[in-house]
């Protein structure tokens, strides 16, 4: 049942958002954002789903079928799956930058509490 996927994506997104809004620990905030990111992957993969479809791979089709028949038939949407790949690559880069900033903050401030890192305000 695909509706479960959508519910799970929404739940993951809200869980991540809750973490970002309420946790003051920087590492936990990064984890929350990662959760939100994962929920978008789940959402996209679920949107790409067609009932009873095959993978959108047109090379080496099963016996008796041509690639054209496969493409015209029931395959999952490759474009949305592609977005997921793009987003995963970007997500990895962002998480790496995130964690390196957090490590530097921890080295300088000896704390990870967002409430103690509020020099710039007003």
């Amino acid at each position: 049942m695909i509706a479960v996927n959508y519910l799970a994506a929404a739940a993951l997104f809200c869980l991540g958002l809750y973490t970002v809004l309420t946790r003051r620990n920087l590492i936990k905030m990064v984890m929350g954002l990662s959760l939100m990111e994962t929920s978008t992957y789940l959402l996209f993969i679920s949107m790409a789903y067609r009932s009873g479809s095959t993978a959108p791979v047109l090379l080496n089709p099963p016996k008796g079928q041509s690639p054209e028949q496969l493409a015209a038939g029931n395959v999952a949407d490759p474009v949305l799956q592609n977005f997921c790949l793009t987003a995963i690559v970007i997500g990895v880069a962002v998480t790496a930058v995130f964690l390196s900033v957090v490590v530097r903050i921890a080295q300088h401030r000896r704390t990870l509490d967002a409430d103690c890192i509020r020099e710039l305000r007003g």
Binding site: V20, L26, M29, L33, M36, E37, T40, L43, F44, M47, L80, F83, A87, I90, V94, V97, F98, V101, V102, R104, I105, H108, I117, R118, E119, L120
Partner: peptide, 25 residues
Amino acid sequence: PALEAAFKILVLTTIAGFCVFMGAG
């Protein structure tokens, strides 16, 4: 302060990125 600012821009722009991504999807 540069680190603090970098963390803030990271959090807010990442959330913005999710919004744009989901909207386009």
